[in-house]
Amino acid sequence: MDLPEIVRPRDLADAVRLTGEGGKPLVGGTDLFVRLRKGAERPPFLVYVGELPELRGIHETEGGVEIGAAATHVEILSAPATAQLPILRLALATIGSPALRHMGTLGGNVVNASPAGDGLVPLYLLGAQVNVVGPARERSLPVEEFVLGPGRTALQPGELIRSLTIPLPRDGAHPYFRKVGRRQALLIAVASLGALVWVEDGAVREARLALGSVAPTVLRPREVERALVGRPLTVEALAELRDALSSAVRPISDLRASADYRRRVSGNLLLDLSSLASG
């Protein structure tokens, strides 16, 4: 593999300028190098943005947490600020392997925009905002609008993600995250389900669901979320919504599993939420 030259920008403005000239941002490289090696991308040069102070750091803000785009999964997992976001930690802890979690970043995971992106699932659940810097202006948009399709985002030429702002969910949310596949580590999910569920008097008060690997993007099945309200978290009650969830997803068949299986498992994973009732 002939690696393109890697350029280290002086500061954020320089990084934006270099990106505008066609340079490809690089942080952990755990997605980018795979793509370069396959010849899927041939950028003229790479811009290493991993050490720009504006893209680093994890801190609490009013009502939320702001995570620099270049923060690694390990940094996020161990930052005190994310203790209030157990769903984020649950999901990030399943990414790849220790080595990958040390190199890979949440910003990279978001821009990679994979339907199987484990970092995206909690961001969808929490309603995260993506903060973007560009040559002209800064802008901020919800993650659901940022991700357009597999590998496609709303980033304009010359734009970088600076950070992600994650609002804290209301107190009392039960977090759930599960990834299905053939083995435990270094696994791209065949299907995944993340959830935040608030329970009151034995019934669901609010539920948020996000599914990975079963549609072109991570998916929030809002009708099923609404239909959950008022139900107890029992297998029987959840089973009534299984078909609704199976029909909400739009999976494909690939090497890892058939569309049919993904559809069925999406529905079945819902039953697993019954485990939240006890926990």
Partner: peptide, 16 residues
């Protein structure tokens, strides 16, 4: 062969 490599052909890892 569609999965000629360890990215798509999985052998058990230590966690398995």
């Amino acid at each position: 062969c569609l999965n000629a490599g360890f990215f798509d052909y999985k052998i058990p890892s230590s966690l398995d």
